[in-house]
Simulated scan of single mutants.
Amino acid sequence: MSFNPSSPMRSLFLTEGVLKLIGGSIFMISPQTPLSVAVGAPIPPSALLLTRLLGTQTFTLGLSMLLASSRTPKAVPSRRIVYWTIFARDATLITVLALQLWFGDNTEALGFSPKGLRAWLAELMPFCLGHLWILITKPHWF
């Protein structure tokens, strides 16, 4: 694969990488902030732990995106696999959240309300669909 100078991928990787670093840091340092939208008080310790764990994943994926955004000979061909990895993580998370909404006992789902689960889905869905759209319809961008 060669570098396509007209491709917006480098800018997309830089932008999303920074957003993932910020979001992951918030999830790790102050999990109560995002959980206040999805979980009623008091926030269960298990929800805090889960949020911190997801924050570490998000932060690490942000680092991967920033590394893949460079113009080095090894970074450019790695962009597709990094993008597939991020898509796979988000699609899996969306699937689990949707299954919890449809089939789970939401009164005991780590304290997450159905409204909170829907908000989480609504936040993830545009990114996941955007990644899938780029992966399927814009392979020449890589």
Rank of each mutant, 00 (worst) to 15 (best):
Q57T: 13
L135S: 10
A47Q: 01
S46K: 06
G17I: 00
L99I: 13
A91Y: 02
S30G: 01
A109Y: 15
G130E: 03
S64I: 00
F112I: 00
I86T: 10
W84F: 13
C128V: 06
L12Y: 12
T137L: 15
L93H: 11
L121F: 01
P31Y: 03
H140K: 12
A98G: 09
A122I: 03
K115C: 04
K115Y: 13
F127M: 11
M1V: 09
F13Q: 05
L66P: 01
R52P: 01
P8I: 03
G55W: 03
M28Y: 05
T85G: 14
W120H: 14
T56A: 10
K115W: 09
F59P: 00
L129H: 04
F59R: 04
G62S: 05
A98L: 15
G24N: 05
S30L: 04
G116C: 07
N106M: 10
S113I: 07
S2G: 06
F103D: 04
D105G: 03
K115G: 12
F13K: 07
R52S: 11
I26T: 00
P8A: 05
F112K: 02
V76S: 00
P126K: 07
R10V: 14
L101Q: 13
G116D: 06
A122C: 10
A68K: 08
S36G: 03
L101C: 05
S78D: 03
I29H: 01
L97A: 14
T60L: 14
L14W: 02
F27E: 10
S113F: 02
R71A: 15
M1C: 09
R10A: 14
P73N: 08
H140C: 04
S11A: 14
F127R: 12
H140N: 11
E16M: 12
T137A: 14
I43N: 08
S78V: 02
M1W: 02
T95M: 11
H140S: 14
I94R: 10
S69W: 00
F59M: 03
F142S: 15
L54I: 10
D90I: 01
K20I: 00
S6W: 10
F59L: 15
L110I: 04
P126V: 03
Q57I: 13
G24R: 04
K20E: 08
L61Y: 14
S69Q: 07
W141S: 05
M28H: 04
S46H: 02
S2I: 02
M65P: 01
S30Q: 07
N106V: 13
F27Y: 10
I26L: 03
T60G: 11
S7E: 06
R79G: 05
L99P: 00
K115M: 09
M28W: 06
L99F: 15
G104A: 08
P44S: 14
V39N: 03
L110G: 07
F103E: 06
V82L: 08
F27V: 00
R118F: 08
I81E: 11
Q32C: 01
E123I: 11
L101T: 08
S70V: 06
L21Y: 01
L12A: 12
G40E: 14
M9K: 04
L135H: 10
P34Q: 06
T92I: 00
I94S: 13
M125W: 06
N4K: 08
T56G: 05
L14S: 02
L61N: 07
R79K: 11
A75H: 00
